[in-house]
Design a protein around this nucleic acid. Structure first.
Lengths: 235, 235
DNA sequence: GAGTGGTCTAGACCACTTG
DNA sequence: AAGTGGTCTAGACCACTCT
């Protein structure tokens, strides 16, 4: 049983790796109980806290299911979790070595359309700032955004200079959100075709983001990416 | 400076919440250094390890940037990270209270097409299992999948009964992967239109997944979701 | 009731990075 | 060279939950 960590310092990462291998190789079969922390600590010759750290990491990654008293089990169907970075568009573009450019297209005060009001839990009579803008990479259209901002939640937005700073960058700096939702879907470019310089029937990836400050809605933004765009992530 | 935790037990979650509030309210301004762990421990009246736990959590969430010797800084543009669950289609459908059904459409041994071979780092002469199948929710088409499996990496797949168990479920059970990539894009339904019962020009969300066992490619799967489908996640 | 994970402590040493 | 975060330890108590 010993000899897993030949002469190595007993770090929680090393323990995690050993346990990960045992899960992958089926030494611990899916659904089965693994030894408790005290036993593993004895096996690895380390403190229980070190084992705890390793197992918590694996549980956070979705490989283990831990319950007090019930013990730690190997997940049946490992819910693989991928972490999706939500960088600023500027950073995303510049990370690819391309030049980023931002172009405001529309700025108006208006009442929200029905669907927007519904998603933000508004009555529809509120004053909202409506902004449309285009984000470019190396001079080519990359993403068109159609955004509604709840002025009551972020009053300072009305005085913000959005000709150089994108509304998203302004919001990130000035008004952090407590939570939000995100939805991916494929749509026809439609009204976004003009700014994106594509056909209205072209399929484009669209992301709808809604963010909140506690119970107050901050913004509703629909992003339309250029047809060629692929969003990639690591597993 | 004290009084942040009136009479409460000093847990790392409580400390995290206090620090989070200070970041949100700009008590700690973006880019600035915050007090080091020892100072915070003194302020909160707890052990340094407890502060460490709280700050590591905030760093993992992208609000803090921590470096040895340099100290801990508030991130300028908080890289929000969303965790994306990758459940089995079956679980995803059943979680919505719908009936799940799986229907195999094609099963053949064939050499991989050029683009597939390229993405999997294959020469093109390999034997591969090509499978197409449809996943239904409450009897309606939900997702069409076009999958190529590297037989050399997963020899047992040739003997698997894929008439009742979907290839993905089989692979999850029998051949865990070490890593992989995922790409989201919007495409015209095209060849998937038939199985999905939509028009070939309808925009559909497509996910390309490629998984590996160390350096050996396991599978290349392109999933096409029904036009109405939205992939949602929490921030 | 009892077993298991969750967390805290106080101290120690190490690793990394910056000046 | 020195300051800071990263981690380990040994022990303790608590919280949850299963039987």
């Amino acid at each position: 049983m010993h000899g897993d960590l030949p002469g190595s310092p007993t770090t929680w990462q090393a323990i995690r790796d050993v346990m990960m291998r045992r899960i992958r190789t089926r030494a611990y079969t899916p659904g089965s109980l693994i030894p408790n922390e005290a036993e593993l600590a004895a096996e690895f010759g380390c403190a229980r806290a070190t084992v705890n750290r390793a197992l918590q990491d694996l549980a956070a990654s979705g490989f283990l299911d831990r319950r007090r008293k019930a013990g730690t089990r190997v997940m049946e169907a490992p819910r693989r979790k991928a972490t999706l970075d939500i960088p600023l568009i500027r950073n995303e573009v510049e990370a690819r070595g391309q030049d980023y450019e931002y172009r405001p297209l529309l700025r108006e005060i208006a009442p929200p359309p029905g669907p927007v009001a519904a998603r933000l839990h508004l009555s529809g009579g509120e004053t909202m700032l409506h902004v449309q803008s285009l984000h470019l990479a190396d001079g080519a259209p990359h993403m068109f955004e159609d955004r509604w901002i709840v002025v009551d939640t972020v009053p300072a937005i009305t005085g913000a200079d959005l000709t150089r700073l994108s509304p998203n960058e302004w919001l990130v700096r000035e008004s952090p959100y407590t939570h939000g939702t995100m939805e991916f879907q494929a749509v026809a470019a439609g009204a976004a075709a003009g700014p994106l310089a594509c056909a209205p029937t072209d399929p484009v990836l669209s992301i709808l983001r809604i963010t909140w400050m506690h119970e107050a809605a901050i913004t509703h933004v629909q992003e339309y990416f250029t047809p060629a765009f692929r969003l990639g992530l690591e597993l």
